[in-house]
């Protein structure tokens, strides 16, 4: 078996907020293999956000070791962490976090501008367009975020996360701001990417969204309390069909005299 992409070993995170110490993560050990599609669930305050920030190299654990693609993240400084985020990770946020008044294309180009190696303008454009094609928005590359729907904005954000060919795609409640239909649409994009071999970890608190993933983790009080594979996984294309059928039925009901 190949080396895991992520290997967490007894991770602790303690925040010293004034006098009180907050023990947010209390010894989580976790391995993530290439090609996995994981949903992390938990109520607020369970430590899932801290876990996500640690996985995302935004924060260093207080104790324990974190190997990302074989590199010991715990030992890196602020700028080395930034390079890890740039090269190994892709981020998708709940609030999309696109730069306003900036075209979809330029938003997708952004991570390449911070790449350690300089990338030519032509290559940046080509790669950004390719990323937009993957999420099906190449035709809208010159649109500004406020000219796109929520689902489209999230797809631009996914394109941005993909553009540096990351080892791991991290999504923090990616469907939290979207309606059911758009959520299914976005999950469809994730499933397509996962089918193409991209490893995805997402945080969600919606059970039916977690059902689109292959493996579910439940975090409570800073520990993983359940770790199980999803049986009867939802497939976005089928869910979409069911949803459309339900919509049509609803319309017919309303239209009937």
């Amino acid at each position: 078996m190949a080396a895991p992409i992520v290997k967490l070993d007894n991770i602790h995170k303690i925040y010293a907020s004034g006098e009180v110490e907050v023990h947010a993560v209390r010894g989580i050990s976790l391995e993530i293999q290439k090609g996995e599609f994981i949903a992390i669930m938990g109520s607020s305050g369970s430590g899932k956000s801290t876990l996500m920030n640690t996985l995302g190299c935004l924060d260093r654990p207080t104790r324990g070791s974190y190997l990302l693609d074989g590199i010991n993240v715990s030992a890196l400084n602020r700028n080395e962490l930034a390079d890890m985020r740039n090269q190994k990770l892709g981020f998708v946020f709940q609030g999309f976090n696109l730069l306003s008044r900036t075209s979809a294309l330029e938003n997708v180009e952004l991570p390449m501008l911070y790449a350690p190696r300089r990338i030519s303008a032509a290559e940046m454009r080509e790669r950004a367009m390719h990323s937009l094609e993957i999420v099906g928005l190449a035709a809208r590359h010159d649109h500004l975020p406020n000219q796109l729907s929520g689902g489209q904005q999230q797809r631009v954000a996914i394109a941005r996360a993909l553009v540096n060919r990351p080892q791991l795609l991290l999504a923090d409640e990616p469907t939290g701001n979207l309606d059911t239909k758009t959520s299914v649409e976005v999950m469809g994009v994730f499933q397509k990417l996962n089918d193409a071999g991209i490893t995805i970890v997402m945080v969600t608190h919606e059970l039916d969204i977690a059902h689109f993933c292959k493996r579910n983790l439940i975090v409570r009080d800073g520990l993983v309390v359940r770790d199980e594979l999803v049986v009867n996984r939802s497939i976005a294309a089928e869910e979409m069909k069911k949803h459309l059928a339900a919509e049509t039925a609803a319309k017919l009901t309303v239209a009937a005299p």
Binding site: R85, L99, L110, Y114, N164
Partner: peptide
């Protein structure tokens, strides 16, 4: 601040 946060998250160094 949010924009700066996005830039930092996707790999900007502080001197950038």
């Amino acid at each position: 601040t949010r924009e700066i946060g996005i830039r930092l998250a996707i790999g900007a160094h502080d001197h950038d």
